[in-house]
């Protein structure tokens, strides 16, 4: 089972193209529909728990699936399997990049890729912010989640001010808002 988990997640890691979210479709197709290692309800739990727990979601999904099917060792095997192929490809690309990064052609490629990546991050910022403000509802003023907008504004403000010449870390901004939400729920 452990070996099979490693191998299945090796393939999922290899074919996850374009980020962690793409792994979910592969997990669903292979582990739920073809192999039946997870029931559809358990798969929904994998989705939910991956987004609730800290860490990159693909790693969370691999760990949780592994732990559910074969305990702690299963979690380790699935995670190790998932990162094997990306680690190999990244090592090769890293080797090439650091070897040739001073070359004109490489600098030209990178000078085009940097703004492109920025555009991609901006696109992610827009989609995550609309999701937070409207929660998937039709975008309108009435449907706006006012509480989220207020937290967003406070967080943005906290990220821009300096205390003793140092900016507040995003780690703190995320941690404090989570703790505030938790406490508010307990006090209610």
């Amino acid at each position: 089972m452990i070996g099979a988990l490693y191998f299945e997640f090796f393939k999922i890691g290899l074919f996850s193209v374009g980020g962690g979210y793409s792994s979910f479709a592969l997990i669903q197709h292979r582990l739920v529909e073809e192999l039946g290692w997870l029931t559809p309800a358990e798969f929904t739990d994998v989705l939910t728990i991956s987004q609730m727990t800290p860490g990159p979601i693909a790693i969370n999904a691999a760990t949780f699936t592994g732990v559910k099917t074969a305990g702690l060792l299963g979690g380790l095997a699935a995670t190790a399997g998932y990162i094997t192929a990306p680690a190999c490809v990244v090592s090769i690309l890293a080797h090439m990049y650091f070897k040739y990064k001073k070359m004109d052609i490489m600098q030209g490629v990178m000078s085009l890729l940097r703004p492109a990546v920025l555009g991609l991050i901006f696109s992610a910022a827009v989609s995550v912010t609309t999701l937070v403000f409207w929660g998937g509802r039709q975008i309108s003023l009435a449907a706006l989640d006012v509480k989220s907008v207020i937290i967003f504004a406070i967080a943005l403000f906290a990220l821009s001010v300096k205390i003793r010449g140092k900016k507040i870390s995003p780690v703190w901004v995320v941690a404090v808002s989570g703790a505030a939400g938790f406490l508010a729920a307990l006090l209610k």
Binding site: M52, L118, I121, F122, A124, A125, V128, T129, L131, V132, F133, S148, V149, I151, F152, A153, A155, L156, L159, S160, P170, V173, V174, V176, S177, G178, A179, A180, G181, F182, A184, A185, L186
Partner: peptide
Amino acid sequence: AVSAALAAMAPAVAATVASAVWSL
């Protein structure tokens, strides 16, 4: 309480990404 914590964290995470886009 856990979903409330996550619901409060999501806008903060969105703000950190927006702020990073701005400074980058």
